[in-house]
Every structure is written in C-alpha cells, then in structure tokens.
Amino acid sequence: MAVSILSREVFDLCLGKPALRSLSVSATVGDALSALKRLGESYLSLWSCDHDKSSRISDDCRCVGKVCMVDIICFLCKEENLRSPAAALRSPLSVLIPKTPTGIVRHLEPHASLVEAIDLILEGAQNLVIPIPSQSRRKRLLQKPSSNSTLHNNREYCWLTQEDIIRYLLNSIGLFCPTPINPINTLNVIDPKNILAVQYDDPASAALPLIFQSLVNHTSVAIVDLDGKLIGEISPFTLNACDESVSPAIATLSAGDLMAYIDCGGPPEDLVQLVKDRLEAQNLEAALELMEEESTITSLSLCSSSSDEESGSGRSKSVGSYSARLIRRSEAIVCYPWSSLVAVMIQALAHRVSYVWVVEEDGSLSGIVTFAAMLKVFRERLNSL
C-alpha cells in the first residue's frame, strides 16, 4: 500500500498551490526588493528568460533559483555594500544566485511520481518546479508576459517543497508502521555533524556564511553557550519576515543581541541606538539610511521597478519590521533522541520549519533532524517492502 502512495503523481500535491511569481535574472537586487515588498511574497522565482525584452514567450525558459529577503539582507551586510547601499541595490540579481553545483533547482513534470520527487531531493535538489496543467488555454492566450508574470513556456508553475511531501506522507503514516513510531536515535536520522552554530557572544557577522548555508539547506543557525547548550537560533524563516533595515544590525551586533533584535515585537530601542553608534564608529554612515522609516536610498534605488506590479500585503518599513506571516520567535524547536519520528514530523509541521534540533536532557545540542533525512527513512522503508 505504501508503494501505491509513493507512486502517486506529484500534481496531486500541487492542487491549489499558487503560481510562482517570477523575476528575470537580468533584474537588479533593488527590483527584487521592490517586488517582495509590493507583492507580499516570501520568495520569487528567478528565470533565465527575460520577458521584458520581448513580447514573445521563450521556449527555453528555465527556473534557475529563487530569491527572498534573506538573500538581500545577507548581501547588504557586506562591508562594501553597507558603505554604498544604493550601488549595491543596483547590482544584478545574478550576484544572489548560489555558486553551487547545478541541480539545486530541478524541473519535474506533473505526471512524475512522488518517489521520483523524493529521489531528486535526496540527490541534492532543494527546490522542485512543477508545471500547473489546469490553467485554461484562454487564460494562457490572454496573459501578457511582464516582469512579475507567472507564465513561462506558455505554462504556469509552482514549487513542490519538502514540507509538502512530508505533510502528504503524514496523512498516510500508518502505512509505514512500525517505522514512524520508532525513536529517532534508532533510525539513523539524527545528524550530529552538519550543525550550523555560533556562540552567544560571537559577532553576528560571523554567522553570515552559516545563515546563507542554512537558507539553502532549509535549516537554521543554532546559538549555543560555552557549554554547548542550545540557547536559541537565527532562523532564515524569522529573518525573511524582516526587511533590509536588519542588515546593519547583523553587521554590528553579537549573535545573542541579534536574536533580541529580530524577535517578535520589533527591536528594543537601546539595541537600535547601539547599532547606530557602531555604524558611526565604523564610518558606515550610509548604512544608517537603511534604518530610516522611509529610506531615501531604498526609494531611489527602487524607482526603476516596473510600475505595473500588483500591490500586496507587503511589509512595514519600520526598523526590523515583520510580516503578518511571522508566527515564531527566536526560541529553537527541539526534540530528544528518544522522540518518535512521527512526533518530530508533527512538531516540525506545526511550527512550519523543515528541521528540529535534537538536545539531551541537560539542554546540550547533539544534532539536527531535517525533512530530507526523514524522506530518506521513508525511501529506505519503501525499498524494504
């Protein structure tokens, strides 16, 4: 029976999902920032075709990646970009595409099986792009390509995520028994080595490469004390609900102070002033404009964005502002080595994360469990049937 579940077409998991909003890789970082705010999107897909330069639809459009607020925040944190944020926002979007081997983004036809999608994820694909076959021919003919078009190759597409697959498997979890009720420390699902972590007093800037890596790997950066006990985390999920005004904070604060800065409710005034003082001390006055409520630099850099972009819920432009989608704080989601696999699955899905930290009874961090590791367990279970 489990075999029949995994043989289902991936389109079954895409029903009701919205079409991808997109940008061309020839757009600028400022264009992406504007689109994310105006459309209220968490991510925008990046495509190798450029609909702005032709009214014809290219036959070789390919999704080559995605961009989110975290990408822009990390990019602006670089010292040279803090010295000239306006110039940084005029950089091409290609600077945000990870310099990783090809295959991070994979296209998959809607009739492909779920097991094919799982295999691609286990091979290293982080994002699966699936055509949406239900769009009417009339709608395709009437829609004109634009900078935020959802139409490529005369089709619309959606993301298929690891969370989508895990949620689908949970609905049929009984078919895989007894595996899901076993403790995770008996399933070789805990990764004790690939833990991204910094200490509480470390500079937040030291975590930048780890933040970027955690974004690619759908994990997070742990904050630990000197004894290795888990204190909290710097989560891409939380950062993605902020705006570009967080960049100066990452460049000047400690990892522990950054947790407080991006926590729900907005940053404390004393930390805001501390960031400003340190920017001035480092001769980074230009970065102060990123922290203004109505940033002149951002407004000027985004004025070239397409005027026909749709209005969305967007984000507030206040310092460290948050989207209404944010439902988590910087406290880390944890489980124990003896927790069952199904309990960890439910815990991750409930908190909308694709990982759970594994801690011992004394709170020391011992590993991480990811959706990808869970999928490997189900794939191996399938092979044993």
Results as ranks from 00 to 15, higher is better:
Gly367Tyr: 04
Leu326Val: 12
Ala117Ile: 04
Gly256Met: 10
Glu79Ser: 07
Ala281Thr: 12
Arg379Pro: 01
Ser330Gln: 12
Phe75Glu: 01
Lys276Pro: 00
Leu76Pro: 07
Pro203Gln: 11
Val369Thr: 02
Ala332Leu: 07
Leu13Trp: 03
Ile57Asn: 08
Lys144Met: 06
Ser321Asp: 10
Met1Cys: 07
Arg8Tyr: 08
Tyr322Gly: 07
Ser48His: 10
Asp270Leu: 13
Arg21Trp: 09
Val70Lys: 03
Met374Lys: 00
Phe176His: 00
Ala88Ile: 06
Arg62His: 14
Thr296Ser: 15
Leu114Gly: 05
Ala35Pro: 06
Val369Tyr: 00
Val221Gly: 03
Pro85Gly: 07
Val342Pro: 00
Asp263Met: 13
Pro110Asn: 06
Ala255Cys: 12
Leu20Arg: 02
Asp191Ala: 00
Ala281Met: 13
Asp52Gly: 08
Arg56Gly: 05
Ile234Arg: 04
Glu9Lys: 11
Ala204Tyr: 12
Glu156Tyr: 12
Gly65Cys: 02
Val70Ile: 14
Ala2Gln: 05
Ser146His: 10
Thr370His: 01
Glu331Gly: 09
Gly266Glu: 03
Ser94His: 02
Arg90Lys: 12
Cys303Glu: 14
Arg379Cys: 04
Gln273Met: 11
Leu89Trp: 01
Leu36Glu: 04
Ser45Asn: 05
Glu41Gln: 14
Gln273Pro: 00
Ser147Arg: 08
Asn148Gln: 14
Ala2Arg: 03
Glu285Gln: 15
Pro101Tyr: 12
Cys264Gly: 06
Cys335Asn: 01
Leu226Asn: 14
His51Arg: 13
Ile57Thr: 07
Asn148Arg: 07
Leu6Ala: 00
Leu13Ser: 00
Val25Ala: 05
Val95Trp: 05
Val67Pro: 00
Leu96Asn: 01
Glu293Tyr: 08
Lys229Trp: 12
Val25Arg: 01
Val29Met: 01
Lys37Met: 10
Leu175Asn: 06
Ile181Ser: 15
Ser147Val: 07
Thr161Ser: 09
Ser307Pro: 11
Ser134Glu: 14
Val3Met: 05
Leu13Met: 09
Asp263Arg: 12
Lys139His: 12
Val198Lys: 09
Val115Arg: 07
Arg352Thr: 12
Val377Ser: 02
Leu382Asp: 02
Leu210His: 08
Asn194Thr: 03
Leu46Cys: 01
Val29Cys: 03
Val358Gln: 02
Lys139Arg: 15
Leu76His: 05
Asp270Phe: 14
Arg106Gln: 08
Arg137Leu: 14
Arg352Cys: 14
Asp263Ser: 13
Val29Trp: 03
Ala197Ile: 07
Asp202Leu: 06
Ser354Met: 10
Asn153Cys: 10
Leu128Val: 06
Lys139Tyr: 12
Glu310Tyr: 13
Asp243Lys: 06
Gln143Trp: 03
Thr186Gln: 13
Ser205Ala: 11
Arg21Val: 09
Asp362Trp: 08
Asn194Trp: 03
Ser134Thr: 14
Ala348Ile: 05
Ile73Gly: 01
Arg62Ser: 15
